[in-house]
């Protein structure tokens, strides 16, 4: 079963690389924010798969933390773009 997780992880990494290219190229700032947000959610899935590859459940905690942090970061960046201040 481990090789299925391994192949899935590699395919997810390829997808993350493609999203990273869009984040670097993105014409507008919203393209970059969208790409970074999508990259973060893919990182959550990749961390969960990595926990199953290495056989350690601790990675799921990191994935949960990363999901929350990614959401807060996206909302904060968008609020800053919209209002030019965070307070």
């Amino acid at each position: 079963m481990s090789w299925v997780f391994l192949i899935s992880g590699v395919v997810l990494l390829i997808g993350m690389l493609l999203i990273l290219i869009r984040a670097l190229l993105g014409p507008t700032v919203f393209d970059r924010v969208l790409a970074v947000n999508s990259f973060g959610t893919k990182t959550v899935v990749f961390l969960a798969i990595l926990g199953f590859i290495s056989g350690r459940a601790d990675f799921l905690d990191i994935a949960l933390l990363y999901a929350l942090m990614n959401f807060i970061a996206t909302i904060a960046i968008l609020k800053f773009i919209e209002q030019r201040k965070l307070s």
Binding site: S8, L18, D31
Partner: peptide, 21 residues
Amino acid sequence: LCIGVFLCLTGAVGILRMPGF
């Protein structure tokens, strides 16, 4: 897992190749 990873990959290709925001 196979369907989900395939959808993730097609989503990534779509983000890269779609014309507008």
